[in-house]
Amino acid sequence: MSRIDAKFAELRKAGKKAFVSYVMAGDPDYDTALEVVKGLPGAGVDVIELGLPFTDPMADGPTIQLAGQRALEAGMTLQRTLQMVRDFREGDSDTPIVLMGYYNPIYSRGVDRFLEEAKEAGIDGLIVVDLPPEEDSELCIPAQAAGLNFIRLATPTTDDKRLPKVLQNTSGFVYYVSITGITGAAAAQSGDVGPEVARIKAATDLPVIVGFGIRTPETAREIASVADGAVVGSAIVSEIAEGKSPAEVLSFVKSLADGAHSA
């Protein structure tokens, strides 16, 4: 059982919904980002999504794109992202970490080497948004064999014909993208999301977590009430972009976590 599986089993037993937060590794710099990441569990975060900076993040809106640029300009690399996970693990061996990014940096490093290093560093799962199920042999299946969950995204355009393909090698949880388009672009609506989550849950036993378009504690609660949890990324990254201190960022994260946990 992975840390992700264990966390969702624990939440299920407690009758609680999950709160997942996304931050970009190295934004605005290594030390500040590490301080924020280390503070996330204490702010109520159940699963951490850690963004891997990349030069061409096609699924991300301007907020996350700029965060990636700031991180790259500050010298962030795949190697330093893995080091950040190691540094986090020195004080936290329980909170699951999902590395979210694109395939190019992983491919450049070499899949086998990357998976060995990721597992050793303390990463629990991967979300690689530009690898479709047709390419599962590239990374998904080797990742599962290495003991890492491979988390797939389902979207409003994932119809009943496509859904089984998306789910076939997915593990950990399913990430439902609540809106069409890029991150941070529109507001999620629980009335739209609920039926879609129910449709996905009818096809899998995995938890279904909803992200994109969640910016307030109220929306986090509404979305978590119709799913197994909520993900917030752009709204948190915006706080960092505004130059808020780690303490201020974490206070905002706690308000979102409280919202999701009250569902």
Rank of each mutant, 00 (worst) to 15 (best):
I4S: 03
F212M: 14
D160L: 10
S190T: 07
T95Q: 04
A188N: 02
V193A: 12
T157I: 10
I151V: 15
E73H: 11
F150G: 02
K119F: 08
E218L: 03
K165E: 05
V177R: 08
D87V: 14
A263T: 08
T77S: 11
Q65Y: 08
E73R: 13
E222C: 06
G110Q: 05
P132C: 02
A202P: 02
A220C: 12
S108T: 14
L153E: 10
F114C: 04
R215V: 01
I106W: 13
V232S: 14
K165M: 03
R89Y: 00
P132L: 05
L50I: 06
P62T: 13
A118Q: 09
V232G: 10
V174E: 10
D160K: 14
V174G: 10
L256F: 14
A6E: 14
T204I: 08
D130S: 07
A143H: 05
V36N: 00
T183P: 12
F19A: 01
I151S: 02
E239C: 13
D258L: 13
G26W: 01
K16S: 00
S93T: 12
E117S: 07
G110N: 01
I236M: 02
S190E: 15
G147Y: 09
C140N: 02
V197N: 09
S108Y: 07
T158E: 09
P96S: 05
M58F: 12
M1L: 08
V45I: 09
V37W: 00
M76Q: 15
D31V: 07
F212R: 05
L78P: 03
T63E: 05
D27V: 04
V111R: 13
P41Q: 14
L72P: 02
Y103G: 03
P164S: 14
D27Q: 09
G259I: 06
F88H: 03
P28W: 13
A25Y: 08
T180M: 15
A154L: 03
G213M: 04
M24Q: 11
T77Q: 02
Y107T: 00
L34G: 01
D160G: 05
L66I: 03
R199P: 03
A260L: 03
T157D: 07
S137T: 10
V47F: 04
G51Q: 08
Y103F: 15
Y22S: 12
Y103C: 02
S251T: 15
Y30S: 07
D29G: 06
K161C: 04
I123A: 10
V177T: 05
R199W: 01
S190H: 09
D92P: 01
S225V: 08
I97H: 02
P41N: 11
P195R: 15
S234L: 11
A74T: 04
Q79M: 08
E120V: 06
K165S: 05
V208T: 12
A6R: 13
A202K: 15
G194P: 01
D228R: 13
S238K: 15
G39I: 06
K244S: 12
V23L: 10
A198V: 11
E218C: 06
E120W: 01
K119R: 15
T77N: 04
R215L: 02
K16H: 01
L139H: 04
L99N: 04
G44K: 13
S21N: 07
V231M: 04
P246D: 11
R3N: 04
G91M: 12
S225K: 08
S234G: 10
R89V: 00
A235W: 09
N169S: 05
T204L: 02
L206V: 08
V226G: 06
G172L: 08
L34C: 09
